[in-house]
């Protein structure tokens, strides 16, 4: 097994997802297949190879420090599922 149900559950929590029991079963097995396929990569010698994290090598894309108009409060909240006054509302954060 590349990945156990416990690990899938942990990763799901990190990603803020939940699964029903039977979904969990299916997912774990599918993920195992996929991760097994990834093992291919272990046969490639990558000693000294710089990881490629961008499609192109670019430097210094900047903008100047100039203020431009923001959205109005109503526009910022226009898509909010639970706006309250001038705010986005969420269930209480328990600290």
């Amino acid at each position: 097994m590349k990945i156990t149900r416990t690990e899938v559950a942990h990763v799901a929590h990190l990603a803020r997802l939940t699964f029903r029991e039977e979904e969990m079963e299916k997912f774990t097995s599918q993920l195992n297949d996929i991760l097994l396929y990834m093992d291919k990569l272990n046969s490639v010698d990558t000693t000294g190879v710089e990881p490629m994290t961008h499609a192109t090598v670019l430097y210094n894309a900047f903008r100047e420090d100039v203020v431009k108009p923001s959205l109005a409060n109503e526009q910022s909240l226009a898509n909010a599922p639970d706006p309250r006054g001038e705010f986005f509302r969420v269930p209480k954060v328990i600290e």
Binding site: R63, V66, V67, K68, S70, L71, A72, N73, S76, L77, G85, E86, F87, F88
Partner: peptide, 17 residues
């Protein structure tokens, strides 16, 4: 982004996409 950093503005008014 180009929103202002000014402190003290009305809530969610220095906001953009």
């Amino acid at each position: 982004c180009s929103c202002s950093t000014q402190f003290g503005a009305g809530p969610n008014t220095h906001t953009c996409p």
